[in-house]
């Protein structure tokens, strides 16, 4: 599916996408959270871009781990530990790899989701990034790994539906939980940022 160089290229594209969508993500967060999601992720991925050359000669596992550690130490808030842990666990799933297959990508996403659940103690249906991540994983498994592009497209479609679904439910995790029913009608910023990342990956393959 992707060589190591392509993975590095994709991380740069993800960083650019987060930068591009930062204001939108922040606006979403302003509505139901504390209005810093885009700002914080953007600060983290800028640092990731600085750090990437340092690990360019390492394997994909080490690169993803570095991305995770960089996010943990620069993003803050809830999204720092969540995305940071996700990338670190993803790195563990492809330790020593110099390329990743579609099957590897499923393993990466599964590990990332495991990291988010470990750190955030959330489940499906709580209006969090998991509401995009879990359907995306299911859809990609269902699509099969024979055609990586088709698999990723199925994941993106499901993630987008997941984002739409977050508009219909009450938040029970994070700061949005204090709003109760007033959180209905708003899409979850974390589910949205994950979808932006997955879509960027899908476009690059």
């Amino acid at each position: 599916m992707a060589s190591k160089d392509q993975v590095i290229e994709i991380i740069h594209k993800v960083a650019a996408a987060i930068e591009r969508e930062a204001q939108f993500l922040t606006d979403l967060d302003n509505a139901i959270g504390d209005g810093d999601h885009g700002i914080n992720l953007s600060r983290g991925f800028k640092k990731v871009e600085e750090e990437l050359p340092v690990v360019a000669d390492k394997d994909i596992g080490a690169i993803l781990k570095k991305v995770g550690m960089t996010l943990v130490s620069t993003v803050g808030g809830a999204s720092g530990p969540l995305y940071g842990t996700a990338f670190m666990k993803a790195g563990d799933a492809v330790k020593d790899h110099v390329s990743i297959s579609a099957d590897d990508f499923i393993a990466v996403l599964e590990a990332a989701i495991g990291g988010v659940q470990l750190r955030g103690k959330a489940e499906k249906g709580e209006k969090t990034m998991l509401d995009a991540m879990l359907p995306a994983l299911d859809a990609m498994k269902a699509a099969g790994t024979a055609d990586a592009k088709a698999m990723l497209d199925a994941g993106v479609k499901a993630a987008k539906e997941g984002v739409e679904y977050t508009k219909t439910i009450i938040a029970t995790k994070g700061r949005a939980s204090y709003l109760g029913e007033r959180s209905i009608g708003h899409q979850d910023p974390g589910a949205t940022s994950f979808t932006v990342m997955l879509e960027t990956i899908a476009e690059a393959i």
Partner: peptide, 12 residues
């Protein structure tokens, strides 16, 4: 002290 209105990071 984290960034404005943002929790500090674990390393700090």
């Amino acid at each position: 002290a984290g960034a404005v209105f943002t929790s500090p990071t674990p390393d700090q």
